[in-house]
Amino acid sequence: MPGDGTGRREGRDETREECADRQWGELIQEVRVAQTGVQILFGFLLTVVFTPRYPQLEQTDQIIYILTVVLGASATGALVGPVSFHRIVAGRRIKPETVQWASRLTFAGLVLLLATMTSALLLVLRVATHDPFVPYLVALVLAWCLLCWFVLPLWARSRFTQD
């Protein structure tokens, strides 16, 4: 890290490995939050097919359901992936690389979680209301999540990142 002319370093004074350890701890905390949400949603989705109402759903709703379950399984896989990745490579002295890959899996998991939530919301609102306004409401919720999960953080990153 560049200094300020006084011999002090800007930012954290940590080695690459210390930085990776800190980032790993932060990432795992973030993954725990996302894993809980996706696991609850996925668990609920798995029960829907066993309800008496499922066979009565329109074919379109059944297709949306199947897509939602596949997205939920994929999100679960991506969000559990960092734990498995770390366990398999532990002790190989590649923590910085592990953090990078785990971060990528987490990001993919968040995108898949958003797709799962959107698809589940579409299905529930279609079945609950049969209202033609449903796609617009789902689009509004999707836009809100995109703003909260991606747009604001990317804006903050670009605005406040030091060169």
Rank of each mutant, 00 (worst) to 15 (best):
M1W: 14
Q29H: 10
V70G: 02
P2S: 14
L146Y: 01
L146F: 15
E10C: 09
D13C: 04
R93F: 04
E30G: 03
T106D: 04
R104F: 14
I40E: 08
A156Q: 10
W149P: 00
A75Q: 03
R22S: 06
E97Q: 14
D61A: 13
G3W: 06
A75R: 01
I64F: 04
R22C: 07
G37E: 10
G109R: 02
Q162C: 07
A120Q: 08
V111D: 06
V151Y: 12
Q62F: 05
L114W: 10
E18F: 04
T129G: 05
L147I: 09
R92Y: 03
R159F: 05
E58M: 09
L27V: 09
L137A: 15
I40A: 09
I64E: 02
S103P: 04
L147T: 12
P52N: 13
F150M: 06
G81A: 15
E97N: 05
L27Y: 04
L113E: 03
R92Q: 14
L146M: 09
P2W: 15
L122W: 10
F85N: 07
K95D: 07
F44S: 04
Q162K: 10
A120L: 11
G43M: 05
W24P: 00
T15I: 06
L79N: 01
V111P: 01
V33Y: 13
R12C: 06
L154E: 09
L121H: 02
F50N: 05
Q56S: 13
P55H: 12
G77S: 14
G81F: 12
T161F: 05
S84G: 14
P96H: 13
L79G: 01
A90L: 07
L27P: 01
L122N: 06
